[in-house]
Design a protein around this nucleic acid. Structure first.
Lengths: 144, 144
DNA sequence: CTTAAATCAGACAAATTTATCTGATTATAC
DNA sequence: GTATAATCAGATAAATTTGTCTGATTTAAG
């Protein structure tokens, strides 16, 4: 059971945060990421391949290959990963599932949810990956 | 694609709001609800059966049967429906999917998401179904 | 009493999401 | 150059969610 993102997206966010926190290394293998984050290896591998296509992640093939961020972590925001994997639908759709929910034809929660959704969007937009580095390291250290 | 609730839960919330907005009627049939809300009939029927077991909805069997709220709409809150269908996991689980996310071992978004989550909980808790009556009627009128 | 219209119960089916497998390709290291 | 270890690509499988079907039961109405 996930909160707002799909499992794929959760894993993608975790993996990218991990990469940002390990910029010192040249590349990190899918296996290391899988082990450290307790994610099925083949699954996280697929997700990182997707993010490579999206231009967020760089991949190095062959022996001693692996993944790294494709750009400066200061130029990547969490919303970019969400957009690439789940899309931005959750920031447009009605929280109650009503069709055509908009200010002219709002659902009973439209106003209140709109505010929260906007703050959630900010949360994913205002800071870049570099800002999460230390917090990620601390968290990852305590997973296993 | 849903926002935070499962489709089942969205439908359940819509259906219960509909019932609250039609307290004047004795009972409302699953068919009427399905048509007015554009929900598959058999599906909403199942959901309302579940909510009947949960004690939120009352059901009248046989010809001219249907559903109604089991209690005073002033005593039912949206969180009750969410709890009955999806459970309250989304208000406890980590938004990034990390295990053991808590103040002592927080994920990078723990603090910020915690605030939003708390406000989302309030949104579902502070008002009772009676308060949504008019807004629901307006919205339902403009669906078809 | 019979018919009709509704919920109820449980199996079934379809669609989506999550996860795994197989083999090909690539590139490093020895 | 050969072995090794990694990504890549696509098929397959498992699990979950969403939706449908069938028939039984219940009850109101004529």
């Amino acid at each position: 059971m996930t909160v707002i993102f799909s499992k794929k997206c959760e894993y993608g966010l975790q993996a990218v945060l991990y990469l940002a926190a390990h910029m010192d290394k040249n590349v990190v293998s899918a296996e290391e990421i899988a082990k450290k984050l307790n994610i099925p290896k083949e699954f996280v591998s697929k997700i990182l391949q997707n993010l490579t296509e999206s231009g967020i992640v760089y991949s190095k093939k062959g022996k001693s290959g692996g993944f790294a961020l494709a750009k400066d972590p200061q130029k990547i925001k969490l919303i970019d990963i969400v957009a690439a994997i789940d899309g931005l639908g959750i920031f447009k759709s009605c929280v109650l599932g009503f069709p055509n929910c908009n200010p002219d034809n709002p659902c009973p929660l439209h106003g209140k949810w709109g505010e929260l959704r906007s703050k959630a969007y900010d949360m994913l937009t205002e800071e870049n990956l570099d800002a999460f580095k230390e917090k990620t390291l601390k968290k990852v250290m305590n997973i296993n």
